[in-house]
C-alpha cells in the first residue's frame, strides 16, 4: 500500500510498524477528508477571484478564466469601514480584558481567600451562558448609560464577557508558578502588587499570547452583540457586515465570497503564524486544573 504515496515512506525510528494495509486505508481516509475540508476554501477563494460577468452559479466550481482581483476590490470598498470598526473594537477589548484577567488570575491563584474558589467558579459561569439570556437587560442598561449604539458600548460588553476566559487562563497559568518564588519576594519586602508587576507579569508573556489570540479571535468572530448593540450599519463589526452583504440581492456573488475571505483573513493569519499557542489555548481553556 506504500505505493499510494508514489514512494516508500521513511519509517520513523519510534514506529516499528511498516506502512501496512491499515495505515494505507487510514491515509486514504485522511486525504479524502482533507479534500472535503478544503471545499469551502476553494469555493470562497476561487469565486472571489472571478469578475462579475463570469461569476455564475452554474460555473461555481470552475476556475476563473482570466486573472483579476475580481470581487476583492469591491468587497474592500464595501467592508473597509467595518473592518476598521472591528479593529477599533478588538484591540482595546483584548488589551483591557487581558490585563484585568491577569490581575484576577494572580489573586485567585496566589492570594486565595475564603470562598475564592467558589467566586472563581461563579465568574466562570459567565463564559458559558447563551448571551440571549442577558441581551434585553444589557441593551436597556447600555441605553441608560448612553453607550448603546456606539463602539464603546460594544468594547465594554466584550471586556466584561471576556473576563471569565482571561481570568481562567491566567489563573491556571499562575498556579504553575512555584509558590516559593512569590514567598521569597514577599520575604524581601515586596507587596502583592509589587510581586505582580515585577515577577508575575514578566513571567506571563506566554499566557498573554494565548489570551491575546483567543480574545482577538473570539471578539473578531462574534456576531450577536455586534448585531444588536451597534445599530448603524456603517459602524457594525465585520461579521455583521458580511452577513448583510450575503443577504443582499443586489450584491454580486463574487463580492460576497471575497468578503468572506476578508472576514476570515485576520484570524486565519493568527492561526497560521501562532498555531502552537492556538492549540495550547484550546487545552488551557477547556481542561481545568
Amino acid at each position: 500500500m506504500a505505493t499510494t504515496l508514489g514512494r516508500p515512506t521513511p519509517t520513523p525510528t519510534t514506529s516499528k510498524k511498516r506502512f501496512g494495509l491499515g495505515k494505507g486505508i487510514g491515509f486514504a481516509f485522511l486525504v479524502f477528508m482533507l479534500l472535503f475540508y478544503l471545499i469551502p476554501v476553494y469555493v470562497m477563494i476561487v469565486n472571489g477571484l472571478k469578475t462579475a460577468d463570469v461569476v455564475s452559479f452554474s460555473r461555481m466550481w470552475e476556475l476563473p478564466t482570466k486573472l483579476s482581483t475580481g470581487g476583492y476590490g469591491e468587497a474592500w470598498d464595501k467592508l473597509s469601514r467595518n473592518v476598521m470598526s472591528s479593529v477599533y473594537l478588538v484591540v482595546p477589548a483584548t488589551l483591557i480584558s487581558g490585563f484585568l484577567g491577569s490581575l484576577n488570575g494572580y489573586i485567585l491563584s496566589k492570594w486565595k481567600f475564603r470562598g475564592s474558589d467558589l467566586l472563581f467558579t461563579l465568574m466562570l459561569f459567565g463564559m458559558f451562558i447563551p448571551y440571549q439570556s442577558i441581551l434585553i437587560p444589557l441593551i436597556k442598561f447600555l441605553q441608560s448609560i448612553g453607550l448603546y449604539g456606539s463602539i464603546w458600548g460594544l468594547i465594554l460588553v466584550h471586556v466584561v464577557y471576556g473576563l471569565p476566559f482571561t481570568t481562567l487562563i491566567f489563573r491556571n497559568y499562575f498556579a504553575n508558578v512555584p509558590n516559593e518564588l512569590v514567598e521569597a519576594a514577599h520575604v524581601d519586602g515586596a507587596g502583592l502588587l509589587g510581586i505582580f508587576f515585577q515577577i508575575m507579569l514578566p513571567l506571563s508573556i506566554p499566557a498573554f499570547v494565548v489570551v491575546g489570540i483567543f480574545q482577538f479571535t473570539n471578539i473578531w468572530n462574534e456576531f450577536l452583540f455586534g448585531l444588536t448593540v451597534v445599530t448603524n450599519p456603517a459602524r457594525q463589526p465585520i461579521t455583521v457586515a458580511l452577513n448583510n452583504l450575503s443577504g443582499s440581492f443586489s450584491i454580486e456573488w463574487n463580492v460576497v465570497m471575497a468578503g468572506a475571505v476578508l472576514t476570515a483573513l485576520p484570524t486565519l493569519l493568527i492561526y497560521i503564524i501562532l498555531g502552537k499557542y492556538f492549540v495550547r489555548g484550546i487545552m488551557a481553556g477547556s481542561v481545568k486544573g
Binding site: L34, W253, A264, G275, F278
Partner: peptide, 29 residues
C-alpha cells in the same frame, strides 16, 4: 507517524479559527 501529519492537523483545525458567519455564508452557497 503518518506522512503529511502537520498538513492534516492544520487543515482539520483551521475552521475553528473562523467565524460561524463565514462558515454559514460559505456553506450556504
Amino acid at each position: 507517524h503518518m506522512p503529511g501529519n502537520a498538513l492534516f492537523r492544520n487543515v482539520f483545525l483551521f475552521p475553528y479559527a473562523l467565524s460561524f458567519v463565514v462558515t454559514g455564508v460559505a456553506w450556504r452557497w
